Simulated assay, not measured.
Amino acid sequence: MQELNFPKFIFRFKSNENKVSIFDGIRKKFIVLQPEEWVRQHCVHYLIHQKKYPKSLINVEKELKVNGLSKRYDIVVFDTDGSIHLIVECKSFNIKIDQTTFDQIARYNLTLNASYLMVTNGLNHYYCVMDFKQERYQFLEDIPDYKPSGDDN
């Protein structure tokens, strides 16, 4: 698999019927290793090990309704109060991130109302903070590290 622009992480793999699977610690099961899943698992490990987000606040590949249509988000990180802190849209490393990708995550955010957005193909990462008053997002250098609610340090 393609080397990605994330720190090195240790993953669990298994092979079955000529298919390699990777263990997803959030969903607690092995998932067939496709390019987008490779990016998703790196991103989950990045959020847990680098940004210190608790596993218990992370959700992976769940369905949501956007304008009456069923869609699936890649990664959502909740705040302890149940609100959504971050949405991550993962693309395969061979897909270029463009305005269409940002339009997709912005549509999802109309439903989810996350404070932060992240778009990655494993090679390039883009981070945004939402400005709900101006109805736009502002690009950041990185997403913030985890800070428990009420921790103002």
Rank of each mutant, 00 (worst) to 15 (best):
Q99F: 12
E36H: 06
T80G: 08
F102E: 04
K96A: 12
V32C: 02
D81M: 09
E61S: 12
I75D: 09
H49F: 11
V44G: 00
T111P: 00
L112C: 11
H85N: 14
L112W: 08
M118A: 11
Y108V: 05
K91A: 09
N109L: 01
Y73A: 03
Y116V: 01
T101E: 14
V39Q: 02
K55T: 13
V119W: 03
F93Y: 15
I48R: 07
S92D: 03
H45E: 14
L117D: 03
I84G: 00
N109W: 01
H49S: 11
L112H: 10
T100V: 06
S70H: 09
K55Q: 15
K71H: 13
D79H: 14
T120D: 02
I58W: 15
L64C: 15
K52T: 13
D103N: 12
Y116N: 00
I31D: 01
A114P: 11
D74P: 06
H42S: 03
I48W: 05
V88E: 00
K52Q: 10
S70P: 06
V32Q: 10
N113Q: 11
I97C: 10
V66R: 00
L117F: 03
T111C: 05
V76W: 01
H85K: 15
K55A: 14
I105D: 01
I31A: 03
I87S: 05
K52E: 10
K29N: 13
